[in-house]
Design a protein around this nucleic acid. Structure first.
Lengths: 333, 333
DNA sequence: CTGAAAGCGCTTACAG
DNA sequence: CTGAAAGCGCTTACAG
């Protein structure tokens, strides 16, 4: 029955024989170079490829070229909605350029991220995409490996590496200003404890520019549970803010769950604005007003950088766009 | 500055030279075979590997062995929460076995899925994981390619291929019975229009076993928007059901948004139970009562099958576990 | 227990 | 414009 599975596949030699040319010529036409090929010869080769159903062996190609047509993607956790959408956008952008994505989650215990990076490199990836925060050691490892790399979705510049991201401070400031425009005077912030979160800065800037006092500040992980905990802290606080800026949709959604559970109405009792613009933000009630990150553009920029691997530019910054819905208190058609 | 990027990496020949052995011996110790190596020689080799920081070139290995240490994962859309969690579990399970995951989304226009499968195979993947519904043509392509493959997360058996999944009918029936136990008599179903959805059958079975009439049935895509639309249809129907079984958490969450927007209270006006057990189901309000799929176990089974690639067993079925929360009307601590 | 050598399927200088 | 041949870095039968 299953006698001869995995039929020996057709190789470039088969194609050459069928077309009556050398194997080199087959390469020349398939790669459009480095040598020119006579139009008729070219046709013969293409025909042979079609007839035989030939597909180049990517491993052989990678060995020969010293680089595979794959990008490695290091992400902390592909399940969190924003990163899931980012992975999707990167997959599309990579595929548009004939590359595949080798995705690795770095949220494992027992396995050092630097080991994962080395592993990716040993697989001859043509570029590394980092959707994660690296330690200084890990970052210098990447630099030492000399592989094209770009950090995506993190804060500002990552010296030594290319980076693609959004202007967090401006985006957060805009969202906060929108909350202020609703007349809220007491506006809190729920975000990560990262030493330096530009969203937090944007929130601060907006408040001080408006002459408002800083609302309550709570630091939690970037998860649904984090958002839930943040809401609990805000509800227990002596003075509950009238509005909150959440550093991510996921945090906002966790907050929504906690507020709902405790009978607090959004936006009537407490308004929310958030960051990211994930799909889930649209399918909660009230729907989230959120600063949307232009994922497609960011993904394409990332791939472009990897393919060019020039050394000129470093940080590629995009603007967020505030998507106004009901959680802030607006009424939307 | 960046004079000599991408330093020529150390090869097996360097290790052999340093250890004073042949390159074959280096392979023997690194692969634990196929030949035995004297303990002392072995130590010398391991030492050389350590000192030189040697990593085998995966492309060379793949070319030589005819198979790379990678699995291909074909998923319809890695963003949808259930599949995002599935990808994560598969990544972990693969990594536990030294494999990487090449993830490909099949939801692209302009690109045929069969092309994506061929591409994956040309990259010498050691196995194909299919988290998607294939057409008959695509399926026979996979069989013809003779590559170990397993279909995960779909309905029942996929003849000709290994498959791993959950008992959808029993899970849906259990969830429906739970709704019935709340005293609801009019119970609808929101699921996909797939010719044959065993969840729909489970729902039917539970109702007829209880002597209840079939509640309203609505067919929508497996998305948040689909759930939203389903809820709209149910609300517009002449007779609104007292409860609904949603075929996925995502559908349930979309419904929750629609009900919230239209002032319907869950579970007081309409109760909900769903399917999957994703994290998001826990961070909505009310929290979703849902039939949980054992993702970790399913992922490990999948990888085990791929590694064994035996021809004996076909469909590997797991049981769901009903997670009771508030959306059905229960009161939870 | 160890090694010399062929082979995996590509790419690309080098000749013609 | 085309081809013969070396080389990429592994694995593994085959000798010893």
């Amino acid at each position: 029955m299953h006698a001869d599975r995995r039929p020996r596949s057709v190789t470039r030699a088969d194609v050459a024989r069928y077309a009556g040319v050398s194997t080199a010529v087959v390469s020349y036409v398939l790669n459009d170079g480095p040598k020119a090929v006579a139009p008729l010869t070219r046709e013969r080769v293409l025909d042979a490829v079609r007839v035989l159903g030939y597909r180049p062996n990517a491993a052989a190609r990678a060995l020969s070229m010293g680089s595979a047509d794959m990008f490695g993607l290091l992400v902390h956790d592909n399940r969190s909605p924003f990163f899931a959408e980012l992975c999707h956008a990167l997959d599309q952008a990579s595929a548009d350029n004939g590359r595949s994505l080798l995705i690795v989650n770095s949220d494992r215990e027992q396995v050092a991220t630097s080991e994962q990076i080395r592993d990716l490199v040993s697989r001859q990836i043509g570029g590394l995409i980092i959707a994660d925060v690296l330690t200084a050691r890990e970052q210098s490892l990447v630099e030492a490996l000399g592989i094209p790399a770009v950090v995506i979705g993190q804060f500002g510049e990552t010296d030594g590496l290319h980076s693609v991201g959004v202007d967090f401070a401006v985006g957060a400031r805009g969202a906060t200003e929108h909350l202020i425009s609703h007349g809220y005077r007491d506006i809190g912030f729920a975000g990560s404890a990262a030493r330096y979160d530009e969203r937090e800065r944007g929130w601060r800037d907006a408040l001080s520019a408006a002459g408002l006092p800083l609302g309550p500040l709570v630091h939690v992980p970037f998860t649904h549970q984090g958002g839930y905990d943040a809401a609990m802290q805000l509800m227990r606080a002596p003075r509950r803010p009238r509005a909150v800026l959440a550093a991510s949709d996921q945090i906002a959604i966790g907050m929504l769950a906690a507020f709902g559970q405790h009978g607090l109405r959004v936006p009537d009792d407490i308004a929310i604005a958030s960051f990211d613009g994930t799909v889930a933000a649209e399918f909660v009630w009230p729907r989230l007003t959120t600063a949307v990150q232009p994922l497609e553009q960011m993904a394409h920029a990332t791939v472009r950088i990897l393919l060019a691997s020039g050394d000129d530019r470093r940080h590629h910054e995009f603007a967020t766009e505030l998507r106004v819905r009901e959680s802030c208190g607006c009424t939307v058609a």
